[in-house]
Amino acid sequence: MIVQKKENLLFSIDSLKKILGFYPKNLTLLKKVFVYDFINNTTINSDNDYLDFHRLEFLGDAVLNSIISHFLCEQLPEKKEGDLTQVRSKIVCRKNLNKISKKLLFENILLNHKFYYISDNILGNTLEALIGFIYLELGYVGCKRFVYDKILHYYVDLSKIQKEIFSYKVWILEWSQKNKFFIKFETYKEDKNQISIKNKHYYLSKLTLINYGIKTIGKGLSKKKSEENAAKAAYIIMKKEDNQTL
């Protein structure tokens, strides 16, 4: 995602009004939704603004989870708690919120002048902060209407998202349990003598699917990521070998 220099970092209230569906009253609080210096991934205002941003983000995250839970109970009445939790996790995962924020927020609000690259995660965080702001402006009912009308109905395809794999590790553990296969993960840090890119040490994970004849290796900057990559590699092999089993 790209944005302009911070001296041009101004959002259009008129453009924002079109997205929100109402004219915001508390403009002072609204500006705290946009406190980041997108060039350096830091804040351009005071420490109080920075604190307020994260408080709005915290509030928006909680409200968003509540509204989406309500939405899923309405749309998927046959699903159990565990299934609903998985679908909600896919909707509110960082990657998905970043995508929605790109489409809904910055590309429509920020002025189009001199551009720089910024972290996608900041986009998702800002979307959560904006939802927190909307909740304070309109209350739960008004915020729910915004999330339904502007996010869920436009950017969430339940039939598609239910088929997506949120975590390959979770998937393969559930699959092995269901089909009575034994699975083993071995994870360790890369040898200290093998310096990686930018002097970062990686984790290596070995996955063995006993009785199925599959062994894979995953690599990542964290234990979680390396195990996820090993599980994804196993999934790809299994899918090629026997689609019907999956």
Rank of each mutant, 00 (worst) to 15 (best):
K189M: 15
C143F: 07
N108R: 06
K144N: 07
Y135Q: 03
K200Q: 15
A129D: 06
S176D: 01
E164P: 02
E186C: 11
N125A: 14
I151G: 00
L173N: 10
K163N: 02
I122Y: 03
S159P: 01
I109M: 06
I109N: 04
Q162T: 05
I118E: 10
N121G: 12
T126F: 10
K114Q: 14
D157H: 00
K200R: 15
E164A: 06
L110H: 05
I183K: 05
Y116I: 11
K144H: 04
I172A: 00
F115D: 12
L152I: 03
L123F: 13
S196P: 10
I151E: 00
D120L: 11
S167N: 05
Y135P: 03
K144I: 07
K169R: 08
T126A: 10
K178F: 08
C143L: 10
K114E: 14
N199E: 15
I131N: 02
Y203R: 09
I134F: 05
K180L: 13
H153D: 01
D157I: 01
Y154P: 01
H113R: 14
Q162H: 05
L123C: 14
I131M: 02
L130E: 02
K160F: 00
I109S: 04
Q194C: 13
K184Q: 11
T187H: 05
D120V: 07
E186K: 12
I161H: 01
I109P: 05
K144L: 11
Y202V: 14
K184P: 10
G139E: 11
E137V: 03
Q162N: 01
N125D: 12
R145S: 10
V147I: 11
Y154M: 00
T187L: 10
F115A: 13
S176Q: 03
T126I: 09
N199L: 13
N179A: 10
C143T: 04
I151C: 02
L152A: 01
E190Q: 08
E164Y: 07
K178A: 08
Q194T: 15
V170E: 15
K192R: 13
L138Q: 10
F166W: 08
K184T: 13
S167A: 08
L204N: 08
T187K: 06
L204W: 04
K169P: 04
I165T: 00
K160D: 03
S167M: 06
S205G: 07
N199T: 14
I161M: 00
L158A: 00
Y188H: 12
R145Y: 06
Y148C: 06
E128G: 09
E186L: 14
E128S: 14
E190V: 12
E174C: 07
K180M: 11
K169F: 04
